[in-house]
Design a protein around this nucleic acid. Structure first.
Lengths: 151, 151
DNA sequence: TATGAAAACTCTCAATC
DNA sequence: GATTGAGAGTTTTCATA
């Protein structure tokens, strides 16, 4: 699926500020407010837009420790097993199965190092996990919040 | 800084749907609409909420290849240098300096493998980059879009 | 299939208590 | 923090291309 230029500009506008008014976005892209709304509705139906969310500054909330955990799993561990286990961790922000030596890469936010360590130990203790390897984030340099392609 | 329970529930509601009305959120948390708005305004002022954005399904937009690139940089490369270079890449979704062998970890979204490879080569060609190591995402298992702590 | 204009409805937000 | 009310935004309808 590919969006046309108009859709792309609408999504771009929403990516910058999801609470902008349809009339405002319409003025930018050259459509009326109803026309913008209809396109947004259609993008949601098609699954291109999956929702609207708030951008939160983790450190402002007191969550100052971020890291990535590589999971090395027992053979015949399915992606579903990993998903099922990780979805229970509120500290897990993202997880993917990956190529390379590790089986999955998990992004974790924690309040502090103690908390991070506790999460790491719980994950390492999951029955299908053989070992883990983790790196801590020193400085978050860049974060584009659309969690997707450039718009 | 720590949010009180009410703030937390408001942020949680916005994380699920940033276009919900204040009255709607208020009904859930037990406040009037203006009271919710005042709290949201205050959270924005404090920097706990940095904005609102749209959740986009990368694959629905035709960006089907995701990967992480570890950057190994020349000594005396500053985080600012890395940030400056990477901010020009629309394909870079996130980047952080990290502990461990690599200096930085970069998340990249690309249309396809060809595109990913091109981005990788451009990054590897940056003057301060000595070498790179990359892994490709097989299945995105979990993605919480608040890019922050659990709410 | 997509648009714009208009009407009806809903929400926002500053003032006030 | 709640209530109020005017202004703003949303959403449906309808006519059009």
């Amino acid at each position: 699926m590919s969006l046309n230029d108009l859709d792309e500009r609408i999504v771009h506008a929403l990516a910058e500020d999801a609470r902008r008014t349809y009339a405002d976005i319409g003025a930018e892209v050259g459509l009326s407010a109803p026309a913008v709304k209809r396109r947004v509705d259609r993008l949601r139906e098609r699954g291109a837009i999956t929702g609207f969310t708030v951008r939160v500054d983790p450190s402002a909330l007191g969550w100052q420790t971020e890291g990535f955990i590589e999971m090395y799993c027992r053979s015949r561990t399915s992606p579903e097993d990993i998903h099922r286990a990780l979805s229970h961790y509120p500290e897990v922000a993202a997880a993917s199965t990956v190529t390379g030596e590790a089986d999955a890469l998990v992004q974790v936010f924690a309040a502090d190092m103690r908390h991070f360590e506790a999460v790491l130990e719980r994950i390492a203790g999951e029955p299908f996990v053989e070992r883990t390897k983790s790196v801590l984030v020193l400085s978050p340099l860049l974060r584009r919040y659309t969690a997707g392609p450039p718009l």
